Simulated assay, not measured.
Amino acid sequence: MEVISGKIEKAKKVVLYGPEGIGKSSLAAQFPKPIFIDTEGSTTELNVDRLPKPTSWAMLQQQVDWVKQQVGRFQTLVIDTIDWAEMQCAESVCAQHGKKGVEDFGYGNGYVYVKEELGRFLNKLSDVVDVGINVVLTAHSQIVKFEQPDEMGAYDRYQLKLGKKTSSQTAPLVKEWADMVLFINYKTYSVAVDDKGKKHKAQGGVRTIFATHHPAWDAKNRHGLPDEFPLDYANIAHIFANVPNHQTAPVQQSEPVVQQQQEPIQQTQPIVEPTQPVQQQPMQNAPTSTVELNPAIPQSLRDLMIQSNVSEEEIQVVVSRKGYYPMETPINNYDPSFIDGVLVGAWPQVFGMVQEFRKTLPFKNII
């Protein structure tokens, strides 16, 4: 067996969380060569590179797969925020099982499904880290009542805001996945009391990063950071200075999206299996489609079709071959639960069937 000694330099997995408006996104924007996946559309005032706001869980995963291929072009993937991404995850799980909400599963099964799906997503993010791209997850905080088994009484503490009930299962996953969990908040320097000694009012404060676990908040780091320090990227910049890139596969960075008109048959993606996600073609920062889509098609499906350059006719062919709807049925007439649960929820499999259909067409008719 090979023995590996010493410190291993690699990309980092970071969680930044705190109250809204504290500066989480602004701090993440200072990481090396960041690319944002803005799940809640809150980075419009930041001068950063970003991908279109994902309108579905499948679209978010496609974007992560694309970033993984951009070794050298970007050095940090920022998902802003992970708690909004978790909501898309829960919606996807419900749509795939034909449920209106997580509670409809019964016996807490819905929360288990969400936990498992989010766990697979974190594994996908770990793959991004393995090729040398840092991953930063921002999240909001929430104040919850907490009572330790060996203590008397309960007290308030800050935790990741990952769903009211799912947080008991998904928040630990995110914290365990991360190398560094940094809590950002205002540090209050004094509390003023009125002349009657009843009303208390905080005075003074500065935005502070807390890097060590405390009874009042979650935090951790493996880099010897002080317990607390001012909100300034310079205080953690040294951690990301020597992150190597480990490019595991050739990536086309200077060429545009593969032109299907020129090489329609040379598809490199494997036939999709239920447990094997399809590898999407590289997309531009603002994905474009060579086909015009009916504006009445639901936005979550339209965005996936645009990113993969899939026409309405191709979806109709695949759907009709499976016996769901006749070929002439417009997509916007499909049942919404079918669109969300099958076409969007199982998009990798749907796209794989579209690719198989394309291989059967004459060269001149391929879209």
Results as ranks from 00 to 15, higher is better:
2 E>Q: 09
77 L>R: 04
315 I>G: 00
161 K>W: 03
50 R>Q: 09
222 R>H: 13
185 N>I: 04
225 L>I: 10
104 D>Y: 03
278 V>C: 07
111 Y>D: 08
119 G>T: 11
106 G>R: 09
214 H>W: 10
292 E>M: 15
69 Q>E: 10
355 Q>Y: 14
219 A>Y: 10
114 V>Q: 04
227 D>Q: 11
220 K>R: 09
143 I>M: 13
121 F>Q: 02
347 W>F: 15
280 Q>D: 01
82 I>D: 01
95 A>L: 10
212 T>H: 11
17 Y>I: 05
111 Y>P: 01
110 G>L: 05
357 F>I: 12
362 P>W: 12
199 K>F: 10
306 I>G: 00
197 G>Q: 05
163 G>L: 12
331 I>F: 12
99 K>A: 02
312 E>M: 14
87 M>T: 13
105 F>M: 01
68 K>D: 00
347 W>H: 13
94 C>M: 12
187 K>H: 08
112 V>M: 13
167 S>N: 14
90 A>M: 13
69 Q>S: 08
137 L>V: 04
248 T>I: 11
329 T>Y: 12
8 I>G: 00
326 P>G: 03
319 V>D: 08
51 L>Y: 09
127 D>I: 07
281 Q>N: 06
230 P>H: 06
279 Q>G: 01
63 Q>T: 06
76 T>G: 00
100 K>Q: 11
269 Q>P: 00
300 S>M: 07
50 R>M: 07
138 T>E: 05
242 N>Y: 10
97 H>I: 11
47 N>G: 02
126 S>F: 11
18 G>T: 01
365 N>K: 09
322 K>I: 06
338 F>L: 10
189 Y>S: 02
32 P>L: 05
312 E>C: 07
164 K>G: 01
111 Y>C: 05
43 T>Q: 09
58 A>P: 01
97 H>E: 11
310 V>F: 07
153 G>Y: 07
300 S>V: 04
91 E>M: 14
365 N>Q: 14
261 Q>K: 15
203 Q>S: 06
115 K>A: 11
70 Q>V: 04
202 A>R: 14
277 P>N: 01
324 Y>L: 06
257 V>E: 09
309 N>R: 13
54 P>I: 06
186 Y>P: 04
124 K>Q: 14
342 V>F: 12
121 F>P: 00
235 N>T: 02
215 P>L: 03
216 A>N: 07
80 D>E: 05
129 V>W: 07
55 T>M: 12
337 S>Q: 09
328 E>S: 04
119 G>M: 07
304 L>K: 03
206 V>N: 05
182 L>I: 13
